[in-house]
Design a protein around this nucleic acid. Structure first.
Lengths: 256, 256
DNA sequence: CGCTTACTTGACATTCTTCAACCGCAGTGG
DNA sequence: CCACTGCGGTTGAAGAATGTCAAGTAAGCG
């Protein structure tokens, strides 16, 4: 295993279906595939917040599947600054290109008490080679990941702090709903304000004020580890949020 | 020559080898594959600056190959703001997932007079199915693209205007060198300050001042359409630039 | 009960944006 | 030939958005 990260991990709720739900949202899975995916999630490792899964420059050796909690990919600057470049939420896979890439260009770490399964490279290759549904689901998940990356980039590039924050919340709402971890009214967000601010490219102080502003405007209310959506319309409007980037429309094998 | 910067290239110099050079930098190509790639570049389409190749929401229908000039992927906000999320330089392919995706989550446009080849979906599929070298080269190119995306995100998130600009220049220097369009001393950069500022997430005014600062510090000098690197060490230092994200180390089929 | 971690708040400094004007050059049409 | 026009770039001044510093509160945990 890459980084020890054996931390006191109270009780991450088991969310054994996350991977299954996620892939099923992108592809039709056979009974056999469903069985395999369930078995993959059977022996998770518990990791505590701030413990690294993978460090920049290392060989990932395979892929990680997040089953509960939350993790992230991040970039660290020599000077000490860091930036979170993606969230790994239950059902997300990091990194399916573990099959391909020998040297990660990012680090990965848990953000909360989480449980994580590891799929070594050979197994991953076998799975995608043999099971078309799994391969297709992973491909689609990857396309979504890339679309999210572009969206985050555009957010940082041309939205204000308030808009960016609202946009992130809208995205998270959608992503958690896909795996059954959110209702329309809100969800558990096991991520600290410090980490949110590292994601949104602003200081903690400013994020905090932005959160108060979102609450004041009656859009969303984050307190403790729980986000309540007060007015989804307003939140969506502030963010100019359009969820289509999270739902790829795939071309069939046959299509022109 | 590369850093000539004589005129704003009304006639895009044919750079027929760009794709070939690019893929060859990632994979070993057979004679047959080299022939195919050359033929692909044979009938390019000329496009003027600001003309769209693809609009968000549309079906790309295939992939575009940039042969000369420069293009970009961008996101447009309803309000009118826009942000450039990646550059498509000679030898780049947009988007190899044209094979997979039916609805683009971004628009693409030329930034300068450019020549572009189009590969329809069926041909693209056949190529990657039959020719392993091409498939491998495209996969690697895609991994680099993704790494660049992450790097850009981190840049926006935690670097100052000066650092970001320097970092972009370092990256471009590397990328142009791969396809033989830059010497260590500089290169032709057929991109306006407005477009650079849309990339770097800052106002044109501020970019302009940042460019002056880079020149004042003796690091780089952009004037007209030509970037002269005055002191590569200093530029690299300002940017904290490390090129390893541009050079993926791939896992062989056999490797564990 | 005292530690630590996450969050909150106020005052101030800085970076960056906006607005507005201006320059220079290339193309265009009289 | 020359005026006109448009685009890309440059500059100054004022103000908004955001960062930094510093201190303080609240909750969880040994």
């Amino acid at each position: 295993m890459t980084a020890g990260g054996i931390c006191p991990s109270p009780e991450p709720r088991p969310e054994p279906d996350a991977l299954l739900r996620r892939l099923a949202s992108h592809a039709d899975l056979t009974e056999a595939e469903i069985g395999i995916l369930s078995r993959l999630s059977a022996a998770p490792r518990a990791v505590g917040p701030r413990s690294d899964l993978l460090r920049e420059g290392e060989d990932p050796g395979g892929a990680y599947v997040i089953l509960s909690g939350a993790a992230c990919r991040y970039k660290q600057r020599p000077a000490g600054g860091r930036h979170i470049v993606s969230y790994l939420l239950p059902g997300d896979v990091c990194d399916a290109d573990g099959a391909l890439l020998r040297r990660a260009d990012f680090s990965a770490a848990a953000l909360a008490h989480s449980s994580v399964a590891f799929i070594p490279r050979p197994l991953l290759r076998e799975l995608t080679a043999v099971h078309d549904g799994i391969a297709q689901g992973l491909r689609a998940a990857k396309l979504v990941e890339e679309a999210i990356l572009r969206m985050w980039l555009a957010n940082l590039g041309c939205r204000s702090a308030l808009e960016r924050t609202a946009h992130l919340f809208c995205e998270l709402l959608e992503r958690f709903q896909v795996v059954g971890l959110a209702t329309g009214a809100g969800f558990d967000l096991p991520i600290t304000q410090v980490d949110l601010s590292l994601t949104l490219g602003m200081s903690t102080v400013h994020l905090n004020r932005t959160l108060h502003e979102l609450r004041r405007q009656g859009a969303a209310d984050l307190r403790g580890r729980s986000l309540r959506v007060l007015d989804r319309e307003r939140l969506t409007a502030i963010a100019e949020f359009d969820p289509s980037y999270l739902r790829p429309r795939l071309a069939g094998r046959d299509a022109s």
